[in-house]
Design a protein around this nucleic acid. Structure first.
Lengths: 252, 252
DNA sequence: TGTCTCGCGATTGCATACAGTTAGTGCTTC
DNA sequence: GAAGCACTAACTGTATGCAATCGCGAGACA
């Protein structure tokens, strides 16, 4: 699942964990903690689309599948509910959240506001690791330049790219807030809906953002990031058209 | 301390809970739900400052105090941890989060971005209940115009005011996000720092916001709200009351 | 006297048993 | 045959018991 094909730099699994899992603080401790394991596993199933929208998540079933009791499963489900990935109905259970076109609108509206702002802050402060961002942008280049773009490899790189910029804004809450709205199945696999043209433009944006950060130009950085987010939104809408309304994570 | 959750300030806490808690749906159903009661009670204690920063919250102790077992207490603590009110240390317990000036800066920076934006959206859509907002603003008038301003009464009104505007923006996630960052003790317990003059100025802001909403003028509405938030922030930083009474309890 | 180690108390993490609630199903009755 | 009702099964909510872990202090040894 985790593409281990990366070179001598940071391990791919580490990148993936850091980018897709903003709430878990520990990385390797998941082996011994039942609640942590349950959380990671269920979350992964939802984000991967293995659990369709509206599907009931039974505590007992999940527990036996994971080899733990209901208690840690309950804890995991409550965490997922707090993140908005599942909805909890009293005395009835937990079901995977459904995502509609309106949800996408809410999410990208917020990103249009928050991410450019955070990028401007990062450009002002000038503490972003532009070498790392350059490296990430180039790796996305390579992943996108092949005959068939490797979206599975681009996604975690893109996550890390955006996350690092927000972290460089100096506002830790901003990172959490954006992560909480972005970590949904439809957004997680934005790149799978990109056409080749959109994909190339997206990766080009990354390079321009890095340049703006290097220039310590907050207005430039903010503008590019805003274009970046809006173009992603447009790509999602055009690719899926009006049919996005019922496009839950169940598409595969 | 009090096994009975309702105390002499039951009325105020009820309003506060209703306005600051985006997750609880009903109020009367709490009687039969131990986890909900535990969550509300512990949260209230933290926001009221009865639990100091860094203080350990023991599951057993809280359970006996509330007349429930550890299980619902654990669930409540996990919810509070997800909201950031407490921090959870593995195998050691849960302690109340500490808040610094930097936290305050992060919060008000985010509010400066998010609340004006939501207000502009609300002005565009024009679905805000301006009658209700007028009513709330006038009630805040009366509560602030007395010889000694009743900040305890203004707080929930202010919460409802801000929350309703954000709800009228049409972006449900915006409401949740703002509530999640604003619901902290540091913001909640800053009443006493504001003099009567500041309170009246803040109330004046409210009236102007309502007027901008009535006029369906998003730019006006956004501007006033931004001034509103910024003045509150300035007042908090200077700590001499020359701002507004904005920084009341958590608005949502 | 200082430091290291072992053991104990306290607390959390997890499992399991029990109670309460909900939805569905089949029977009864009109 | 249809509608209403009671019963049942499944699942969640809560309580409790047990194991694992951590911190701290007492005691031993240098």
């Amino acid at each position: 699942m985790n593409s281990n094909s990366t070179g001598p730099t940071a391990g791919a699994s580490e990148v993936l964990a850091a980018t897709t899992d903003p709430f878990t603080t520990t990385d390797a401790s998941a082996s011994g903690r039942a609640a942590e394991r349950a959380y990671t596993a269920i979350r992964q199933q939802i984000l991967a689309g293995e659990r369709g929208g509206g599907e009931w998540l039974r505590e007992g079933e999940l527990g036996t599948a994971l080899g733990v009791s209901r208690t840690p499963v309950r804890e995991a489900l409550r965490r997922l509910a707090a993140e908005g990935l599942v909805s909890h109905e009293r005395n009835r259970g937990v079901r995977v959240q459904n995502w509609s076109a309106h949800d996408l609108e809410e999410i990208f509206s917020l990103r249009t506001v928050l991410e450019p702002w955070g990028t401007a802050l990062a450009a002002e402060r000038g503490v972003a690791d532009t070498d790392l961002l350059d490296e990430l942008a180039h790796r996305m280049d390579r992943a996108a330049s092949g005959p068939v773009p490797d979206v599975e490899r681009i996604a975690p790189l893109n996550n890390q790219f955006h996350r690092h910029i927000l972290e460089a804004s100096g506002n830790a809450r901003l990172v959490t807030l954006v992560a909480s709205v972005v970590d949904v199945p439809l957004v997680s696999r934005t790149f799978s809906r990109y056409g080749p043209e959109s994909l190339r433009r997206s990766v080009a944006h990354h390079h321009e953002i890095v340049n703006a950060l290097k220039a310590h130009d907050p207005i430039w950085a903010e503008s590019v990031m805003r274009s970046h987010v809006r173009s992603a939104w447009a790509a999602l809408r055009t690719n899926d058209g009006d049919g996005a309304a019922e496009a839950t994570s169940a598409d595969g």
